[in-house]
Design a protein around this nucleic acid. Structure first.
Length: 106
DNA sequence: TTAATGACCTATC
DNA sequence: CGATAGGCCATTA
């Protein structure tokens, strides 16, 4: 069991219409300092079908420039399709759509 | 085993 | 506000 597996498990638990930051996923995975590892894990993205990487964004609510999912536009499209709103700045409104976890506060 | 890398985050200039 | 530097960790070569 590698850290990647844990990260994937967390990402899979992100509900539709909600987004989570790398730091958030890292914290849920077990360590708050796995933010980079989370990015690295998603970079591999062994199962794009079951791992909604587009729901994982950085602290700015923005996606990676090197997003190998189809482009940043693709991610924005997917998130909008799920009901996630964007700010005029072109980033996700983390204050409203960030995932707070089920146990903590839905 | 050592060295290098990376889809990050925070603080500072 | 934008750009730069450093820190942190696991994975890969």
């Amino acid at each position: 069991m590698t850290v990647f597996e844990r990260i994937y498990a967390i990402v899979r638990q992100i509900p539709p219409g909600r987004v989570a930051t790398y730091g958030q996923v890292a914290m849920l995975a077990g360590n708050p300092r796995w933010a980079r590892v989370v990015g690295y894990a998603l970079h591999q993205n062994p199962d794009p079908d079951t791992i909604p990487c587009h729901r994982v964004v950085n602290r700015q609510g923005r996606t990676a420039s090197a997003f190998a999912f189809g482009g940043e536009d693709m991610q924005r499209f997917l998130l909008e399709a799920e009901g996630v709103g964007f700010t005029p700045e072109g980033v996700v409104d983390l204050e409203k759509y960030i995932w707070h976890t089920d146990v903590d506060n839905r």
